[in-house]
């Protein structure tokens, strides 16, 4: 039985990698006694597939994975969620769970954009910097790909960008931005590099949180699996 799970990854555990997250889930499901179907063959692997990689160091309220369970699972059963939460590392929380038809496209190919909150510490007038970027017809950014440096126009990848009120307490300014994932996509740190070309993004950014992953159905954009957390961050406990 195939199930799609949305979860958070907050606090210290954000310093683990995408590969680590896969291990955390494999181990957690075994600890929780929720048996995962395995691939056939000489060296059977558990049937888990993960969505778009979250950069190491970034947090998230919208991480996804698809799990093929060996047994039937009641996705509305709060006990199943509780067992998963207890088995997962501190900082993870299951936010939503739904049956998932085999015919649906994979997470990697289905998601068209992600929304990010980014806490920055910049001296300049952030609204003005954001305005300048949004007004530009094109925004060239030099990036490295497969060992070669090339200049891309990243403006089409920036679907939305606004400076706003911090969703959590913090000393800096919060940006909210929706960045396309198609083709190369745009990483949050690359957006910061485009906003402040003279600065090292590591000096400016203290926190990055993915809040949404968007898919399109019948011309409408929606979150892969909506959850209570979408109403506001207070729903999720800080790790």
């Amino acid at each position: 039985m195939r199930v799609r799970i949305r979860h958070s990854k907050l606090g210290k555990v954000r310093f683990t990698s995408h590969r680590d997250t896969a291990r955390h889930w494999e181990r957690a499901l075994r600890k929780a006694g929720l048996r995962v179907a395995t691939s056939g063959g000489f060296s059977p692997r558990p049937r888990l597939s993960f969505g778009l990689a979250l950069p190491t160091g970034a947090e998230s309220l919208a991480e996804y994975l698809d799990v093929e369970f060996a047994d039937a699972i009641d996705v509305g059963d709060s006990d199943v969620v509780r067992r998963m939460d207890q088995a997962l590392p501190v900082g993870y929380q299951v936010l939503a769970m739904a049956h998932h038809a085999d015919a649906e496209p994979s997470l990697q190919s289905d998601v068209v954009a992600c929304t990010w909150w980014i806490e920055v510490h910049a001296d300049a007038d952030v609204d003005a910097v954001v305005g300048t970027l949004l007004d530009a017809a094109s925004v060239p950014l030099e990036r490295e790909r497969k060992g070669q440096r090339r200049v891309d126009d990243i403006r089409p990848s920036i679907e939305a960008l606004a400076a706003g009120r911090p969703p959590w307490s913090g000393a800096g300014t919060w940006l909210e931005s929706t960045l396309a994932t198609a083709e190369r996509g745009l990483r949050p740190t690359e957006l910061i590099a485009a906003l402040w070309p003279q600065r090292d993004p590591l000096d400016l950014v203290s926190r990055i949180v993915r809040t949404h992953q968007w898919i399109e159905r019948g011309g409408t954009r929606r979150e892969v699996l909506p959850a209570a957390v979408d109403a506001g961050p207070a729903v999720v406990a800080w790790a």
Binding site: F15, T16, T56, G57, L202
Partner: peptide, 19 residues
């Protein structure tokens, strides 16, 4: 915490293991 964005394998320094 602010140093960990600048180093390789920051998960080495966070603890939080099972056990």
């Amino acid at each position: 915490e602010p140093l960990l964005a600048r180093v390789q394998k920051p998960a080495r320094y966070i603890g939080c293991e099972d056990g």
